[in-house]
């Protein structure tokens, strides 16, 4: 556990070196605020209904603003790291480390996320509140949504890590697989369009997909759309999916490292 925190600390320190990147990211977020703000306003005004599939215009705009705020935390570059490690044979050195490969990179990602929370999330939250009428529907729900987002970050990391392992066997096809995974994830996590807008039958299926718990569920908690029991159930589901993807990772990692020659490609 000490090693895990040491990795977080190291990654946090490293992140402080590239402050400009965070300012650029905030600027990027403002652009997404503008897109979502005007886009959903136009859709709702043109449609004429006050409520579409259980969401009002204000709720939908706030939903999309929250997606833009949290987006950076739910995007990893683990696929690039694994690809580089496999291609260049760096993995040999990393295998010597006292911490498991996946957990080590999770710690690094968390360290970076802690830094971007203070330098990116909080400032963009303030901008959203003051310039785009971002509403907090209850401080309790808001805090619970952050817990859900924390679990979503870990879940997202292990989903990405599992897909990254394909690099060990098929390094050339990986770009296509990664792209397909990203598209699937962004469509079915509620990142582009709230899942309420999908047909009813698909919404039932989404309940059993891990992607639902990345954006949609934490934001539904923030909007106060989930009951107490549903919130607890969503946390349980997130934990089950984390354990599930971690177990898959351990299984494949053991199998792949056994046959890996480590000479690079």
């Amino acid at each position: 556990m000490n090693y895990f925190f040491a990795f977080i600390k190291q990654s946090f320190k490293e992140s402080t070196k590239s402050r400009v990147v965070f300012f650029i990211n905030i600027f990027g977020k403002i652009i997404f605020f503008i897109i979502n703000f005007y886009l959903w306003q136009a859709i709702f005004n043109y449609d004429g209904r006050g409520v579409i599939n259980g969401l009002t215009m204000e709720e939908t705009i706030n939903y999309m603003l929250f997606v833009s705020i949290m987006y950076g935390l739910l995007s990893t570059n683990i696929h690039r790291i694994v690809m580089k490690d496999v291609k260049n044979g760096y993995i040999n050195i990393k295998l010597l480390r006292p911490l498991d490969y996946g957990l080590g990179h999770l710690a690094m990602a968390l360290g970076q996320n802690i830094y971007s929370f203070f330098l990116e999330i909080i400032p963009s939250l303030i901008i959203a509140i003051f310039f785009f009428n971002f509403k907090i529907y209850g401080i309790f729900y808001f805090l619970l949504s952050f817990i859900s987002f924390f679990l979503a970050i870990i879940l997202n990391f292990f989903i990405d890590l599992n897909f990254s392992l394909i690099n060990f066997k098929f390094i050339d096809t990986y770009s296509a697989v990664n792209f397909a995974k990203s598209v699937f994830k962004s469509l079915f996590s509620g990142e582009i369009v709230p899942l309420n807008f999908f047909p009813q039958i698909m919404q039932q299926i989404f309940k059993f997909l891990p992607t639902t718990y990345l954006f949609y569920t934490p934001i539904m908690i923030y909007l106060g759309k989930l009951s107490g029991a549903d919130i607890i159930l969503s946390f349980i589901f997130q934990l089950i999916f984390i354990i599930f993807f971690y177990a898959i990772y351990k299984f494949f990692w053991k199998m792949l490292t056994k046959s890996f020659e480590g000479v690079g490609v």
Binding site: A42, I43, F44, Y46, D47, G48, R49, I52, N53, D172, T173, S175, A176, F179, A180, V183, S186, L187, I192, V193, F197, F198, P199
Partner: peptide, 27 residues
């Protein structure tokens, strides 16, 4: 592989539009 990526790209761009247009009056 590139053709496959293109097909996925088409899906990624068209599905959100289809969802919005099926649930609302659209743009």
């Amino acid at each position: 592989l590139f053709l496959l990526i293109d097909i996925i790209y088409i899906i990624s761009l068209s599905v959100p539009f289809l969802i919005i247009y099926s649930a609302t009056e659209g743009f």
